[in-house]
Amino acid sequence: MSQAHTARSSHSRFERHSRFERHSSFERARIRTGVAFLVPTTLLCILFIIVPLVNVVIYSFHDWNGVSKDMAYIGLDNYRMLPSTEGFWQMAVATLAFAVGTTALVIVLSFILALALDSKNRGRFTRGLFRTLWFFPCILSGSVVGIVWRIMYNYNNGVINAILKMAGLSPVNWLETYGLTNLAVIFAAVWAQAGLCIVIFLAGLQSISPELHEAAAIDGASMGQIRRHITIPMMAPSITINVLTTSIAAFKMYELPWLVSGGLPGYSTRLLTQRIYFFAFQSGKFGVGSALAVILILIITAISLVQLVVLRKREDIY
């Protein structure tokens, strides 16, 4: 009895000891060094990401012009005021139309392109070359793309109307027509974004084992059937990723759409990001601007959470 007791107690002492052992003095020194390694990253991220993030929420509850010392707490008034600010609903519609339109066009275009590039008729070199060609605009800055497209859309002197005239068509007022200008901005954004999705789609397509297609072909499936029943289901994860990342990019875009259309005509192409910038740096309404910024952060966080859930589900694949 007493012997058993000693054995148990010595056993538990051993266990406690081993738990301690796992973080031996060597381990503890390593952990201390590791923590030191995190210091610069942590400081920078706290100071320049987390602090501003907390502050934008705080500002959004205050009436503040950004300069004066006194910030008046006004609760949710900035948010309540938003719908009555000039052009708010036009902005909401324009932002949503821009995000949805850009995403839809980018996905369709890049999926078709990726399929064309994945075709086994193409050699490695051709595939790489075309992928680079389609990717190229993604390296250019939003400002560069915006300036180029604005010039191309010019009514009298732009290249697009020049081509229309050469084809015997009448020129189009791309940047001063309600509705059409939204489309014009979307085209420029699609041009700048498609390459990213093509690369992702192509990587996805090339990871589908060719045996699957062969087996289906042997069983007598047509090309259309193979696409519908093998390629698209296998590509579902890449499609989801591309839809989510493209829509996030579209919600975040600032200078490209601004340079193409300047938000005109009226408020019809003015986006959420451009309103944030306007309230903060042109009209000095930091509170209202911050409320809009909080809304943008919430939209993007929501899309990212969807992305996270989707990725968690398929974690076992990788």
């Binding site: 320049f48 993030l53 500002y59 950004g66 975040k252 944030i276 911050s290 910024a293």
Partner: peptide
Amino acid sequence: IPFIGALIPLVVL
């Protein structure tokens, strides 16, 4: 986090 969302407090900071 979208950068433009934190832009206003960043400029103040």
